[in-house]
């Protein structure tokens, strides 16, 4: 996933200026890391250089004059090419969670305490997300974002439970 593709995707609706793009990114992908304006600007310039967007004019609302960008035919083709691809399913296990469990075993001989603490932290975060989801006036984007996060946290928790059971079994085998 690249910011270029996201900006191109947002531009398929209609021409937009840089600030608008930043705002829409943050709104439509709630919970994602907010985009810095400088990053938007740099990306747009790169896309313009590659011929995927073009300047269509300027707009002035209540602030400074802003450059409006529109997507080119090549840009549209690029977006659809990108959407036709799939995301590489987790090629590396780079979770700090996993590292901590292994190192807790190495350094402390047991991951039980850590797993329990982590479970409570995870569940606390899930409670927050659930509360946000249940609150009146949650937008579709917010609901989807909360569901996304909840499913991932849930997957973590289930892995942690499996890890605990595996470690238990191994310990019992070694002792026996």
């Amino acid at each position: 996933m690249s910011i270029g593709h996201i900006l191109l995707g947002l531009l398929t609706e209609r021409p937009k200026h840089g600030y608008e793009l930043k705002r829409e990114h943050d709104e439509r992908l709630p919970g994602a890391k907010p985009l810095a304006y400088g990053q938007v600007y740099a990306t747009l310039q790169r896309l313009q250089r590659d011929g995927k967007v073009a300047i269509s004019g300027t707009a002035q609302e209540s602030g400074p004059e802003r450059t409006v960008y529109e997507i080119t035919g090549e840009g549209t083709a690029d977006v659809h090419r990108w959407l036709a691809e799939i995301e590489q399913p987790a090629p590396f296990i780079s979770s700090p969670l996993f590292a901590r469990v292994v190192l807790a075993l190495v350094a402390e001989g047991s991951a039980d305490g850590y797993l329990l603490r982590q479970r409570s932290a995870h569940l606390e975060r899930m409670r927050e997300l659930t509360a946000r989801k249940s609150s009146a006036g949650a937008s579709v984007g917010e609901l989807l974002a909360a569901d996304y996060a909840l499913h991932h946290l849930d997957a973590d928790l289930r892995w942690m439970e499996t890890a605990r059971q595996r470690i238990d079994e191994l310990t019992r085998e070694i002792r026996a």
Binding site: R119, S120, L123, M126, R127, T130, L150, R158
Partner: peptide, 26 residues
């Protein structure tokens, strides 16, 4: 057994082999 259901609760009581594995306050 569903963590996402448990997230609706104020508090969770985790059981392991017939005893609590530590109550986790909200």
């Amino acid at each position: 057994h569903d963590n996402r259901v448990a997230a609706y609760a104020d508090r969770e009581i985790v059981l392991r082999d017939g005893v609590t594995a530590g109550e986790v306050m909200a």
